[in-house]
Design a protein around this nucleic acid. Structure first.
Lengths: 76, 76
DNA sequence: GGTGATTTGTTCGTATGTATT
DNA sequence: TAATACATACGAACAAATCAC
């Protein structure tokens, strides 16, 4: 879930949470992230918020996304 | 782009620019306007500003808007 | 090959909050 | 106070690509 009281935007909180899972090895290279719909439900946010978070991860080079397939942890 | 120094609000400048393209025939009846997101980037303004501009055009009967599809130049 | 479900991509609709003028 | 402008966040509809069967 996301911290409603934090001044940090939800999409940044979510991006940070996912980045942590990637850096800790919980999500490994080439492995898929949960789908947008799954992340929506797990974190209790709207799809647009999930997409903003994933966009950040993409901009940081942590993940790559393919239409119709999903988003995957980048190779290092 | 929009003129930061002008006393005219951004959304009015943008509406005028689009109206000009419609009246000049550069944007023809039934043709779609650029999306809100495209106009944001092209003119360097926020989405709310784009929406205010398009609202003006709608009030003038120059365009019609459909959810999930876009905004189109009105038939005359 | 075909159909339906899943997943991401794109678009507009709406509401709230903040800052500035 | 009111108008402008930006950012965030929700929802809805539709499209394109892929997958499962």
């Amino acid at each position: 879930m996301v911290d409603e009281m934090s001044p940090v935007p939800f999409y940044v909180q979510l991006a940070d949470a996912l980045a942590k899972q990637i850096e800790s090895g919980k999500l490994k290279p080439r492995q898929p992230l949960p789908s947008e719909s799954t992340l929506q439900q797990e974190y209790g946010v709207a799809r647009g918020t999930v997409r903003s978070a994933v966009r950040l991860l993409r901009e940081r080079g942590l993940v790559v996304t393919f239409t119709g397939r999903g988003t995957f942890v980048s190779d290092k």
